[in-house]
Write a protein that binds this DNA or RNA. Structure first.
Lengths: 239, 239
DNA sequence: ATATTTTTTTTGTTCTACATATTCATAAAT
DNA sequence: ATTTATGAATATGTAGAACAAAAAAAATAT
Protein backbone atom coordinates (compact mmCIF):
# COMPACT_ATOMS: atom_id res chain seq x y z
CA UNK A 1 0.00 0.00 0.00
CA UNK A 2 2.40 2.71 -1.17
CA UNK A 3 -0.21 5.42 -1.10
CA UNK A 4 -2.79 6.14 1.55
CA UNK A 5 -3.44 8.14 4.64
CA UNK A 6 -0.47 7.47 6.88
CA UNK A 7 -2.15 8.49 10.08
CA UNK A 8 -4.73 5.81 9.40
CA UNK A 9 -2.29 3.07 8.56
CA UNK A 10 0.31 3.68 11.21
CA UNK A 11 -0.76 3.27 14.77
CA UNK A 12 -0.10 6.47 16.64
CA UNK A 13 2.20 6.19 19.64
CA UNK A 14 0.01 7.16 22.52
CA UNK A 15 1.01 6.66 26.09
CA UNK A 16 -0.96 3.59 27.01
CA UNK A 17 -2.62 4.00 30.35
CA UNK A 18 -3.82 1.35 32.76
CA UNK A 19 -7.38 2.13 31.78
CA UNK A 20 -6.53 1.27 28.17
CA UNK A 21 -5.05 -2.04 29.20
CA UNK A 22 -7.86 -2.92 31.56
CA UNK A 23 -10.42 -2.07 28.90
CA UNK A 24 -8.66 -4.48 26.56
CA UNK A 25 -8.37 -7.16 29.23
CA UNK A 26 -12.04 -6.89 30.06
CA UNK A 27 -12.89 -7.27 26.38
CA UNK A 28 -10.71 -10.36 26.13
CA UNK A 29 -12.23 -11.71 29.30
CA UNK A 30 -15.79 -11.27 28.09
CA UNK A 31 -14.95 -12.87 24.77
CA UNK A 32 -12.97 -15.73 26.21
CA UNK A 33 -15.61 -16.60 28.73
CA UNK A 34 -18.29 -16.23 26.06
CA UNK A 35 -20.34 -13.79 28.08
CA UNK A 36 -23.81 -13.28 26.73
CA UNK A 37 -26.20 -10.37 27.29
CA UNK A 38 -27.59 -10.59 30.80
CA UNK A 39 -24.59 -12.33 32.32
CA UNK A 40 -23.17 -10.68 35.40
CA UNK A 41 -19.61 -9.39 35.50
CA UNK A 42 -17.41 -9.79 38.58
CA UNK A 43 -17.58 -7.04 41.15
CA UNK A 44 -15.43 -3.97 40.66
CA UNK A 45 -13.25 -4.80 43.64
CA UNK A 46 -12.71 -8.34 42.45
CA UNK A 47 -11.69 -7.08 39.02
CA UNK A 48 -9.37 -4.56 40.59
CA UNK A 49 -7.70 -7.23 42.69
CA UNK A 50 -7.49 -9.72 39.86
CA UNK A 51 -5.92 -7.16 37.54
CA UNK A 52 -3.85 -5.63 40.32
CA UNK A 53 -4.99 -2.08 39.71
CA UNK A 54 -7.02 0.35 41.72
CA UNK A 55 -10.76 0.26 41.60
CA UNK A 56 -10.50 3.66 40.03
CA UNK A 57 -8.85 2.33 36.91
CA UNK A 58 -11.37 -0.46 36.65
CA UNK A 59 -14.16 2.05 36.84
CA UNK A 60 -12.64 4.11 34.05
CA UNK A 61 -12.54 1.06 31.81
CA UNK A 62 -16.07 0.04 32.78
CA UNK A 63 -17.24 3.57 32.14
CA UNK A 64 -16.03 3.25 28.58
CA UNK A 65 -17.89 0.01 28.00
CA UNK A 66 -20.94 1.53 29.61
CA UNK A 67 -20.80 4.44 27.20
CA UNK A 68 -20.95 2.03 24.27
CA UNK A 69 -23.90 0.30 25.85
CA UNK A 70 -21.92 -2.90 26.28
CA UNK A 71 -22.65 -3.12 29.98
CA UNK A 72 -25.20 -1.83 32.43
CA UNK A 73 -24.70 -1.33 36.13
CA UNK A 74 -27.16 -1.14 38.95
CA UNK A 75 -26.48 -0.62 42.57
CA UNK A 76 -26.35 -3.77 44.58
CA UNK A 77 -27.24 -5.88 41.55
CA UNK A 78 -23.86 -5.42 39.96
CA UNK A 79 -22.84 -5.07 36.34
CA UNK A 80 -24.23 -7.13 33.50
CA UNK A 81 -23.41 -7.47 29.85
CA UNK A 82 -25.93 -5.71 27.62
CA UNK A 83 -26.61 -5.57 23.94
CA UNK A 84 -24.38 -2.77 22.73
CA UNK A 85 -25.64 0.19 20.81
CA UNK A 86 -24.04 -0.48 17.48
CA UNK A 87 -24.23 3.09 16.26
CA UNK A 88 -23.53 4.81 19.56
CA UNK A 89 -19.81 5.20 19.15
CA UNK A 90 -20.28 6.34 15.61
CA UNK A 91 -22.84 8.93 16.56
CA UNK A 92 -20.69 10.48 19.24
CA UNK A 93 -17.79 11.14 16.93
CA UNK A 94 -19.65 12.39 13.89
CA UNK A 95 -18.99 16.09 14.02
CA UNK A 96 -18.10 17.69 10.68
CA UNK A 97 -16.16 20.40 12.46
CA UNK A 98 -13.60 18.14 14.04
CA UNK A 99 -13.25 15.56 11.26
CA UNK A 100 -10.48 16.05 8.75
CA UNK A 101 -11.17 16.79 5.11
CA UNK A 102 -10.29 13.35 3.84
CA UNK A 103 -12.61 11.60 6.25
CA UNK A 104 -15.42 13.98 5.37
CA UNK A 105 -14.94 13.19 1.70
CA UNK A 106 -14.87 9.49 2.47
CA UNK A 107 -18.12 9.69 4.40
CA UNK A 108 -19.69 11.72 1.66
CA UNK A 109 -18.84 9.01 -0.81
CA UNK A 110 -20.13 6.39 1.58
CA UNK A 111 -23.53 7.98 1.51
CA UNK A 112 -23.53 8.14 -2.28
CA UNK A 113 -22.75 4.45 -2.38
CA UNK A 114 -25.58 3.72 0.01
CA UNK A 115 -28.07 5.64 -2.11
CA UNK A 116 -27.01 3.75 -5.18
CA UNK A 117 -27.16 0.38 -3.49
CA UNK A 118 -30.53 0.97 -1.92
CA UNK A 119 -32.67 0.07 -4.91
CA UNK A 120 -32.94 -3.69 -4.57
CA UNK A 121 -33.92 -3.78 -0.93
CA UNK A 122 -36.26 -0.87 -1.53
CA UNK A 123 -38.17 -2.67 -4.25
CA UNK A 124 -38.44 -5.86 -2.25
CA UNK A 125 -40.02 -4.07 0.72
CA UNK A 126 -42.04 -1.18 -0.66
CA UNK A 127 -45.71 -0.91 0.28
CA UNK A 128 -48.60 1.15 -1.04
CA UNK A 129 -48.55 3.17 2.14
CA UNK A 130 -44.94 4.08 1.50
CA UNK A 131 -45.84 5.27 -1.98
CA UNK A 132 -48.60 7.45 -0.57
CA UNK A 133 -46.27 9.06 1.93
CA UNK A 134 -43.63 9.74 -0.69
CA UNK A 135 -46.39 11.18 -2.84
CA UNK A 136 -47.22 13.64 -0.08
CA UNK A 137 -43.63 14.72 0.35
CA UNK A 138 -43.16 15.29 -3.36
CA UNK A 139 -46.41 17.19 -3.59
CA UNK A 140 -45.47 19.60 -0.85
CA UNK A 141 -42.12 20.05 -2.46
CA UNK A 142 -43.32 21.19 -5.90
CA UNK A 143 -45.45 23.88 -4.31
CA UNK A 144 -42.61 25.55 -2.47
CA UNK A 145 -39.59 25.83 -4.66
CA UNK A 146 -37.87 28.47 -2.57
CA UNK A 147 -34.24 27.79 -1.91
CA UNK A 148 -34.25 27.63 1.89
CA UNK A 149 -36.93 24.97 1.89
CA UNK A 150 -35.32 22.73 -0.67
CA UNK A 151 -32.89 21.15 1.72
CA UNK A 152 -35.69 20.13 4.05
CA UNK A 153 -37.52 18.27 1.33
CA UNK A 154 -34.32 16.79 0.07
CA UNK A 155 -33.75 15.34 3.49
CA UNK A 156 -37.37 14.30 3.93
CA UNK A 157 -37.49 12.40 0.69
CA UNK A 158 -34.26 10.52 1.10
CA UNK A 159 -34.88 9.79 4.76
CA UNK A 160 -38.18 8.25 3.83
CA UNK A 161 -36.37 5.95 1.43
CA UNK A 162 -34.16 4.67 4.22
CA UNK A 163 -37.15 4.32 6.47
CA UNK A 164 -38.84 2.14 3.87
CA UNK A 165 -36.08 -0.43 4.06
CA UNK A 166 -37.37 -1.43 7.49
CA UNK A 167 -33.74 -1.60 8.50
CA UNK A 168 -33.31 0.37 11.72
CA UNK A 169 -29.53 0.25 11.67
CA UNK A 170 -29.51 1.48 8.16
CA UNK A 171 -31.86 4.30 8.88
CA UNK A 172 -29.93 5.42 11.88
CA UNK A 173 -26.72 5.25 9.94
CA UNK A 174 -28.11 7.61 7.36
CA UNK A 175 -29.24 9.99 10.07
CA UNK A 176 -25.74 10.11 11.44
CA UNK A 177 -24.25 10.64 8.01
CA UNK A 178 -26.67 13.43 7.21
CA UNK A 179 -24.86 16.31 8.96
CA UNK A 180 -21.68 15.38 7.15
CA UNK A 181 -23.45 15.33 3.84
CA UNK A 182 -25.04 18.70 4.42
CA UNK A 183 -21.78 20.18 5.59
CA UNK A 184 -19.85 19.02 2.56
CA UNK A 185 -22.55 20.24 0.18
CA UNK A 186 -22.62 23.65 1.85
CA UNK A 187 -18.85 23.97 1.70
CA UNK A 188 -19.05 23.12 -1.95
CA UNK A 189 -21.66 25.80 -2.50
CA UNK A 190 -19.48 28.38 -0.84
CA UNK A 191 -16.75 27.69 -3.36
CA UNK A 192 -18.66 27.22 -6.59
CA UNK A 193 -21.37 29.71 -5.79
CA UNK A 194 -24.51 27.89 -6.74
CA UNK A 195 -26.14 24.63 -5.74
CA UNK A 196 -26.23 22.10 -8.51
CA UNK A 197 -29.17 19.80 -8.99
CA UNK A 198 -29.47 16.75 -11.16
CA UNK A 199 -31.98 16.56 -13.96
CA UNK A 200 -33.98 13.78 -12.35
CA UNK A 201 -36.30 15.10 -9.65
CA UNK A 202 -37.86 13.40 -6.65
CA UNK A 203 -41.05 13.25 -8.66
CA UNK A 204 -39.23 11.26 -11.34
CA UNK A 205 -37.69 8.96 -8.76
CA UNK A 206 -41.08 8.29 -7.25
CA UNK A 207 -42.51 7.41 -10.66
CA UNK A 208 -39.64 5.01 -11.19
CA UNK A 209 -40.38 3.44 -7.83
CA UNK A 210 -43.99 2.92 -8.83
CA UNK A 211 -43.58 1.71 -12.38
CA UNK A 212 -39.97 0.87 -12.98
CA UNK A 213 -37.56 -1.82 -11.95
CA UNK A 214 -34.62 -1.56 -9.55
CA UNK A 215 -32.22 -0.92 -12.41
CA UNK A 216 -34.32 1.98 -13.69
CA UNK A 217 -34.57 3.51 -10.26
CA UNK A 218 -30.85 3.22 -9.81
CA UNK A 219 -30.24 4.89 -13.13
CA UNK A 220 -32.50 7.72 -12.06
CA UNK A 221 -30.78 8.02 -8.72
CA UNK A 222 -27.42 8.21 -10.43
CA UNK A 223 -28.68 11.09 -12.50
CA UNK A 224 -30.30 12.71 -9.48
CA UNK A 225 -26.97 12.61 -7.66
CA UNK A 226 -24.88 13.35 -10.74
CA UNK A 227 -23.51 16.71 -9.50
CA UNK A 228 -22.11 14.94 -6.48
CA UNK A 229 -20.64 12.14 -8.52
CA UNK A 230 -18.93 14.69 -10.73
CA UNK A 231 -17.04 15.97 -7.76
CA UNK A 232 -16.10 12.52 -6.58
CA UNK A 233 -14.55 11.77 -9.94
CA UNK A 234 -12.24 14.74 -9.63
CA UNK A 235 -10.67 13.22 -6.59
CA UNK A 236 -9.17 10.48 -8.75
CA UNK A 237 -6.02 12.51 -9.16
CA UNK A 238 -4.93 12.97 -5.61
CA UNK A 239 -5.59 9.61 -4.10
CA UNK B 1 -44.32 4.29 13.46
CA UNK B 2 -46.63 1.59 14.73
CA UNK B 3 -44.23 -1.21 13.98
CA UNK B 4 -40.53 -1.38 14.64
CA UNK B 5 -38.00 -2.41 17.16
CA UNK B 6 -39.20 -0.91 20.40
CA UNK B 7 -35.88 -1.12 22.18
CA UNK B 8 -34.42 1.05 19.45
CA UNK B 9 -37.17 3.62 19.45
CA UNK B 10 -37.69 4.01 23.14
CA UNK B 11 -34.83 5.28 25.18
CA UNK B 12 -34.00 2.74 27.82
CA UNK B 13 -34.26 3.92 31.40
CA UNK B 14 -30.75 3.73 32.64
CA UNK B 15 -29.70 5.36 35.86
CA UNK B 16 -27.84 8.37 34.56
CA UNK B 17 -24.57 8.79 36.36
CA UNK B 18 -22.52 11.91 36.83
CA UNK B 19 -20.02 10.60 34.29
CA UNK B 20 -22.80 10.45 31.70
CA UNK B 21 -23.76 14.03 32.37
CA UNK B 22 -20.21 15.31 32.43
CA UNK B 23 -19.47 13.51 29.16
CA UNK B 24 -22.42 15.31 27.61
CA UNK B 25 -21.46 18.65 29.11
CA UNK B 26 -17.93 18.32 27.80
CA UNK B 27 -19.28 17.56 24.34
CA UNK B 28 -21.51 20.62 24.47
CA UNK B 29 -18.62 22.69 25.74
CA UNK B 30 -16.30 21.63 22.94
CA UNK B 31 -18.96 22.27 20.36
CA UNK B 32 -20.06 25.60 21.74
CA UNK B 33 -16.54 26.91 22.04
CA UNK B 34 -15.76 25.57 18.57
CA UNK B 35 -12.73 23.63 19.72
CA UNK B 36 -10.54 22.48 16.89
CA UNK B 37 -8.00 19.64 16.85
CA UNK B 38 -4.92 20.71 18.76
CA UNK B 39 -6.72 23.09 21.11
CA UNK B 40 -6.06 22.50 24.78
CA UNK B 41 -8.85 21.61 27.17
CA UNK B 42 -9.02 23.05 30.67
CA UNK B 43 -7.24 21.14 33.38
CA UNK B 44 -9.03 18.27 35.05
CA UNK B 45 -9.25 20.11 38.34
CA UNK B 46 -10.68 23.19 36.70
CA UNK B 47 -13.30 21.11 34.93
CA UNK B 48 -14.13 19.36 38.16
CA UNK B 49 -14.61 22.67 39.95
CA UNK B 50 -16.58 24.23 37.12
CA UNK B 51 -18.91 21.25 36.92
CA UNK B 52 -18.96 20.77 40.69
CA UNK B 53 -18.02 17.13 40.60
CA UNK B 54 -14.99 15.22 41.74
CA UNK B 55 -11.95 14.99 39.56
CA UNK B 56 -12.70 11.29 39.41
CA UNK B 57 -15.94 11.77 37.56
CA UNK B 58 -14.29 14.16 35.15
CA UNK B 59 -11.62 11.57 34.50
CA UNK B 60 -14.24 8.94 33.74
CA UNK B 61 -15.82 11.20 31.16
CA UNK B 62 -12.46 12.15 29.68
CA UNK B 63 -11.52 8.50 29.56
CA UNK B 64 -14.52 7.89 27.34
CA UNK B 65 -13.58 10.64 24.94
CA UNK B 66 -10.02 9.40 24.96
CA UNK B 67 -11.18 5.95 23.98
CA UNK B 68 -12.91 7.37 20.91
CA UNK B 69 -9.76 9.23 20.01
CA UNK B 70 -11.45 12.58 20.52
CA UNK B 71 -8.82 13.79 22.97
CA UNK B 72 -5.24 13.01 23.83
CA UNK B 73 -3.63 13.63 27.18
CA UNK B 74 0.01 13.97 28.10
CA UNK B 75 1.43 14.58 31.49
CA UNK B 76 2.17 18.18 32.24
CA UNK B 77 1.06 19.31 28.78
CA UNK B 78 -2.58 18.70 29.50
CA UNK B 79 -5.36 17.43 27.31
CA UNK B 80 -5.93 18.48 23.70
CA UNK B 81 -8.65 17.84 21.20
CA UNK B 82 -7.65 15.30 18.56
CA UNK B 83 -9.10 14.08 15.32
CA UNK B 84 -11.35 11.27 16.42
CA UNK B 85 -11.12 7.80 15.03
CA UNK B 86 -14.38 7.65 13.16
CA UNK B 87 -14.59 3.86 13.11
CA UNK B 88 -13.15 3.22 16.55
CA UNK B 89 -16.41 3.05 18.45
CA UNK B 90 -17.91 0.92 15.75
CA UNK B 91 -15.05 -1.51 15.78
CA UNK B 92 -15.18 -2.05 19.51
CA UNK B 93 -18.79 -3.06 19.51
CA UNK B 94 -18.84 -5.26 16.44
CA UNK B 95 -18.99 -8.70 17.96
CA UNK B 96 -21.47 -11.08 16.32
CA UNK B 97 -21.83 -13.01 19.54
CA UNK B 98 -23.25 -10.17 21.56
CA UNK B 99 -25.31 -8.46 18.87
CA UNK B 100 -28.95 -9.37 18.61
CA UNK B 101 -30.38 -11.15 15.61
CA UNK B 102 -32.13 -8.15 14.15
CA UNK B 103 -29.01 -6.00 14.22
CA UNK B 104 -26.98 -8.77 12.62
CA UNK B 105 -29.51 -8.99 9.83
CA UNK B 106 -29.47 -5.23 9.43
CA UNK B 107 -25.70 -5.18 9.15
CA UNK B 108 -25.77 -8.03 6.70
CA UNK B 109 -28.10 -6.04 4.50
CA UNK B 110 -25.93 -2.99 4.91
CA UNK B 111 -23.03 -4.83 3.37
CA UNK B 112 -25.16 -6.04 0.48
CA UNK B 113 -26.20 -2.47 -0.20
CA UNK B 114 -22.57 -1.36 -0.14
CA UNK B 115 -21.57 -3.99 -2.66
CA UNK B 116 -24.34 -2.96 -4.98
CA UNK B 117 -23.56 0.73 -4.69
CA UNK B 118 -19.86 0.29 -5.20
CA UNK B 119 -19.87 0.14 -8.98
CA UNK B 120 -19.80 3.81 -9.92
CA UNK B 121 -16.93 4.82 -7.68
CA UNK B 122 -15.09 1.68 -8.65
CA UNK B 123 -15.23 2.45 -12.35
CA UNK B 124 -14.14 6.04 -11.84
CA UNK B 125 -11.02 5.01 -9.92
CA UNK B 126 -9.89 1.69 -11.32
CA UNK B 127 -6.31 1.38 -12.58
CA UNK B 128 -4.50 -1.23 -14.64
CA UNK B 129 -2.57 -2.26 -11.59
CA UNK B 130 -5.82 -2.98 -9.80
CA UNK B 131 -6.92 -5.18 -12.68
CA UNK B 132 -3.67 -7.11 -12.51
CA UNK B 133 -4.02 -7.75 -8.81
CA UNK B 134 -7.62 -8.89 -9.17
CA UNK B 135 -6.44 -11.13 -11.98
CA UNK B 136 -3.98 -12.76 -9.62
CA UNK B 137 -6.59 -13.34 -6.96
CA UNK B 138 -9.00 -14.90 -9.41
CA UNK B 139 -6.30 -17.10 -10.90
CA UNK B 140 -5.31 -18.51 -7.53
CA UNK B 141 -8.95 -19.10 -6.79
CA UNK B 142 -9.80 -21.26 -9.79
CA UNK B 143 -6.93 -23.60 -8.98
CA UNK B 144 -8.10 -24.42 -5.49
CA UNK B 145 -11.78 -25.01 -5.41
CA UNK B 146 -11.80 -26.81 -2.09
CA UNK B 147 -14.45 -25.63 0.28
CA UNK B 148 -12.29 -24.41 3.18
CA UNK B 149 -10.30 -22.14 0.91
CA UNK B 150 -13.25 -20.56 -0.82
CA UNK B 151 -14.07 -18.16 1.96
CA UNK B 152 -10.54 -16.78 1.92
CA UNK B 153 -10.73 -15.94 -1.75
CA UNK B 154 -14.20 -14.60 -1.36
CA UNK B 155 -12.87 -12.19 1.23
CA UNK B 156 -9.74 -11.38 -0.77
CA UNK B 157 -11.65 -10.51 -3.88
CA UNK B 158 -14.23 -8.31 -2.28
CA UNK B 159 -11.72 -6.65 0.02
CA UNK B 160 -9.66 -5.72 -3.00
CA UNK B 161 -12.71 -4.05 -4.49
CA UNK B 162 -13.09 -1.84 -1.44
CA UNK B 163 -9.39 -1.13 -1.46
CA UNK B 164 -9.64 0.06 -5.05
CA UNK B 165 -12.05 2.82 -4.08
CA UNK B 166 -9.14 4.62 -2.41
CA UNK B 167 -11.55 5.38 0.37
CA UNK B 168 -9.93 4.45 3.68
CA UNK B 169 -13.07 4.88 5.73
CA UNK B 170 -14.95 2.71 3.35
CA UNK B 171 -12.37 0.02 3.39
CA UNK B 172 -12.16 -0.03 7.13
CA UNK B 173 -15.90 -0.15 7.38
CA UNK B 174 -15.99 -3.25 5.23
CA UNK B 175 -13.32 -4.86 7.38
CA UNK B 176 -15.41 -4.29 10.45
CA UNK B 177 -18.52 -5.62 8.78
CA UNK B 178 -16.75 -8.74 7.58
CA UNK B 179 -16.99 -10.84 10.75
CA UNK B 180 -20.70 -10.17 10.88
CA UNK B 181 -21.12 -11.20 7.29
CA UNK B 182 -19.19 -14.42 7.79
CA UNK B 183 -21.07 -15.21 10.96
CA UNK B 184 -24.47 -14.77 9.35
CA UNK B 185 -23.48 -16.85 6.33
CA UNK B 186 -22.19 -19.63 8.55
CA UNK B 187 -25.34 -19.64 10.66
CA UNK B 188 -27.33 -19.86 7.45
CA UNK B 189 -25.24 -22.82 6.32
CA UNK B 190 -25.86 -24.62 9.58
CA UNK B 191 -29.59 -24.40 8.96
CA UNK B 192 -29.89 -25.06 5.25
CA UNK B 193 -26.98 -27.44 5.07
CA UNK B 194 -25.13 -26.24 2.03
CA UNK B 195 -23.50 -22.99 0.97
CA UNK B 196 -25.23 -21.36 -1.94
CA UNK B 197 -23.30 -19.56 -4.61
CA UNK B 198 -24.53 -17.27 -7.33
CA UNK B 199 -24.06 -18.10 -10.98
CA UNK B 200 -21.77 -15.17 -11.63
CA UNK B 201 -18.23 -15.88 -10.47
CA UNK B 202 -15.41 -13.55 -9.53
CA UNK B 203 -13.93 -14.26 -12.95
CA UNK B 204 -17.12 -12.94 -14.53
CA UNK B 205 -17.13 -9.87 -12.31
CA UNK B 206 -13.56 -9.11 -13.24
CA UNK B 207 -14.39 -9.36 -16.95
CA UNK B 208 -17.26 -6.96 -16.40
CA UNK B 209 -14.89 -4.58 -14.66
CA UNK B 210 -12.55 -4.68 -17.62
CA UNK B 211 -15.00 -4.49 -20.47
CA UNK B 212 -18.38 -3.54 -19.15
CA UNK B 213 -20.01 -0.46 -17.72
CA UNK B 214 -21.04 0.23 -14.12
CA UNK B 215 -24.56 -0.98 -14.84
CA UNK B 216 -23.32 -4.30 -16.19
CA UNK B 217 -21.02 -4.81 -13.23
CA UNK B 218 -23.85 -4.07 -10.87
CA UNK B 219 -26.08 -6.56 -12.64
CA UNK B 220 -23.36 -9.15 -12.30
CA UNK B 221 -22.86 -8.36 -8.64
CA UNK B 222 -26.57 -8.71 -8.02
CA UNK B 223 -26.45 -12.17 -9.53
CA UNK B 224 -23.27 -13.01 -7.64
CA UNK B 225 -24.99 -12.11 -4.38
CA UNK B 226 -28.37 -13.51 -5.37
CA UNK B 227 -28.48 -16.24 -2.70
CA UNK B 228 -28.09 -13.58 -0.05
CA UNK B 229 -30.70 -11.35 -1.61
CA UNK B 230 -33.12 -14.27 -1.65
CA UNK B 231 -32.88 -14.47 2.08
CA UNK B 232 -33.30 -10.77 2.54
CA UNK B 233 -36.54 -10.87 0.61
CA UNK B 234 -38.00 -13.40 2.98
CA UNK B 235 -37.73 -10.93 5.80
CA UNK B 236 -40.41 -8.81 4.17
CA UNK B 237 -43.05 -10.62 6.17
CA UNK B 238 -41.93 -9.96 9.70
CA UNK B 239 -40.83 -6.39 9.55
C1' DA C 1 -48.60 -15.67 55.91
C1' DT C 2 -48.06 -10.92 55.16
C1' DA C 3 -46.20 -6.47 56.12
C1' DT C 4 -42.53 -3.77 57.96
C1' DT C 5 -38.01 -2.84 59.45
C1' DT C 6 -33.12 -3.76 59.48
C1' DT C 7 -29.05 -5.41 57.50
C1' DT C 8 -26.07 -6.31 53.80
C1' DT C 9 -24.08 -5.59 49.49
C1' DT C 10 -22.51 -3.27 45.36
C1' DT C 11 -22.16 0.69 42.62
C1' DG C 12 -21.61 5.88 42.68
C1' DT C 13 -18.99 9.70 44.40
C1' DT C 14 -15.64 12.38 46.94
C1' DC C 15 -11.20 13.34 48.90
C1' DT C 16 -6.34 12.98 49.73
C1' DA C 17 -1.93 11.67 48.62
C1' DC C 18 1.67 10.47 45.79
C1' DA C 19 4.05 8.81 41.30
C1' DT C 20 5.54 10.18 36.87
C1' DA C 21 6.52 12.43 32.84
C1' DT C 22 7.40 16.65 30.59
C1' DT C 23 8.01 21.46 30.14
C1' DC C 24 10.40 25.58 31.56
C1' DA C 25 13.78 28.07 33.85
C1' DT C 26 18.16 28.25 35.78
C1' DA C 27 22.91 26.98 36.57
C1' DA C 28 27.11 24.72 35.07
C1' DA C 29 30.35 23.33 31.59
C1' DT C 30 32.57 23.64 27.27
C1' DA D 1 28.07 32.57 24.01
C1' DT D 2 26.21 28.30 23.12
C1' DT D 3 25.31 24.04 24.73
C1' DT D 4 24.51 20.83 28.28
C1' DA D 5 23.19 19.37 32.83
C1' DT D 6 20.23 20.22 36.85
C1' DG D 7 16.19 21.10 39.18
C1' DA D 8 11.64 23.08 40.13
C1' DA D 9 6.94 23.30 38.63
C1' DT D 10 2.87 21.25 36.88
C1' DA D 11 -0.80 18.32 34.88
C1' DT D 12 -2.00 13.75 34.29
C1' DG D 13 -1.91 8.87 36.10
C1' DT D 14 -2.69 5.76 39.98
C1' DA D 15 -3.84 4.24 44.59
C1' DG D 16 -6.57 3.81 48.69
C1' DA D 17 -9.96 4.91 52.04
C1' DA D 18 -14.30 6.52 53.17
C1' DC D 19 -19.05 7.37 52.76
C1' DA D 20 -23.72 7.84 50.12
C1' DA D 21 -27.41 5.57 47.94
C1' DA D 22 -30.14 2.09 46.10
C1' DA D 23 -31.75 -2.37 46.06
C1' DA D 24 -31.92 -6.97 47.48
C1' DA D 25 -31.97 -10.14 51.33
C1' DA D 26 -32.82 -11.19 55.95
C1' DA D 27 -34.99 -10.51 60.23
C1' DT D 28 -38.71 -8.94 62.86
C1' DA D 29 -43.42 -7.65 63.98
C1' DT D 30 -48.30 -7.84 62.95
Amino acid sequence: MPNGNLSNDIRRIESTTMADIVELRLREFLKKKAFKPGDALPKEIELAEALDVSRNVVREALSRLRMLGMIESRKKRGTVLAEPDIMGGFERVMDPLILDQKTLQDLFELRLVLEMGLADILFSRITNKDIDQLEQIVEKEVNKIQQPFRLKFEVDFHSKLYLMTGNDTFQRFQNILLPVFEYVVKEEQKLTGKAKVGKVTHRDLLDLLKKGKPEDFRKGMKEHLSPHFERVKKRTINR
